[in-house]
C-alpha cells in the first residue's frame, strides 16, 4: 500500500501542476510573477520529490519481495526520530499487531455519520453513529452502550447548540 500511496501523491502532484498551468496566469504583462507562479514552483518540486519518493518505495518493495522480509509496518516519523535519538527499534515504540479492517469500518461509519447529518440532523446522526459503533466494537455491554450512546450526543448537542450557540444541521425532529 505504501507504494500506492506514493503513486497517488505523484498523480495528484501532476494533476495539481497541469491544472495550474491550464487555468492560472504565470507572469503578468509587466513581467511580474502572477497567481500561477508559486503553485507552479510547488507543483514542479512536488512532481520531482514524489517521483524520487515513489522510486524509493518501489525499490524497497522489490527488495522486500526478493528477500521475503516484510517490516511490521512503517513507524510514524515522530517515533522514528525518537527511536533514532534513543537508539532503540522504532517498531518497539510503534509496532505490534495491525487492525486495518477496524480502521476501514470506523472510517466508513464516520463517512455515514457525515452523510446523514444534513438529512436527519446532528443529534440523530450522532446517536446513530454511537449505536452502530458501540454495538460493533463493544457488544458485551448493551445497556451501558445504550446509555452512553444517548448521553454523549445529548451533552455535546447541549454544549454546542445551547451553550456555544453553534449552527448545527437540523433534522425532521427539529434537533
Amino acid at each position: 500500500m505504501k507504494k500506492w500511496f506514493a503513486a497517488g501523491l505523484l498523480a495528484l502532484a501532476i494533476g495539481y501542476t497541469v491544472y495550474g498551468l491550464h487555468t492560472l496566469t504565470l507572469v503578468t504583462s509587466s513581467g511580474r510573477p502572477a497567481a500561477g507562479f508559486f503553485p507552479l514552483l510547488i507543483g514542479v518540486l512536488l512532481i520531482v520529490s514524489c517521483t524520487v519518493n515513489l522510486w524509493g518505495d518501489v525499490r524497497e518493495w522489490l527488495e522486500e519481495k526478493r528477500t521475503g522480509i516484510v517490516p511490521v509496518h512503517q513507524a510514524d516519523p515522530e517515533a522514528e526520530a525518537k527511536a533514532d535519538a534513543l537508539g532503540v527499534d522504532a517498531h518497539a515504540i510503534d509496532g505490534g499487531p495491525e487492525f486495518g479492517r477496524d480502521v476501514l469500518i470506523v472510517f466508513l461509519y464516520i463517512c455515514g455519520f457525515v452523510a446523514i447529518m444534513n438529512v436527519v440532523g446532528a443529534f440523530l446522526a450522532m446517536l446513530a453513529f454511537m449505536l452502530v459503533y458501540l454495538f460493533t466494537f463493544n457488544r458485551a455491554h448493551p445497556v451501558s452502550n445504550a446509555i452512553y450512546a444517548l448521553a454523549l450526543p445529548a451533552s455535546l448537542y447541549g454544549l454546542f447548540k445551547i451553550l456555544l450557540n453553534a449552527s448545527l444541521p437540523v433534522g425532521p425532529l427539529g434537533l
Binding site: F129, M130, Y148, F160, L168, P169
Partner: peptide, 29 residues
C-alpha cells in the same frame, strides 16, 4: 473503545460548527 466516539463526535461536530459547512466537514473526513 469508549474514547473513540468522543473524539469522532468532537471532530465532526466541531468542524461543522466553525462555518456551518458540510464541505469543510468532508474535508475533515
Amino acid at each position: 473503545v469508549n474514547v473513540v466516539p468522543v473524539i469522532v463526535l468532537l471532530c465532526v461536530i466541531g468542524a461543522f460548527a466553525i462555518n456551518a459547512s458540510i464541505v469543510e466537514t468532508w474535508i475533515l473526513v
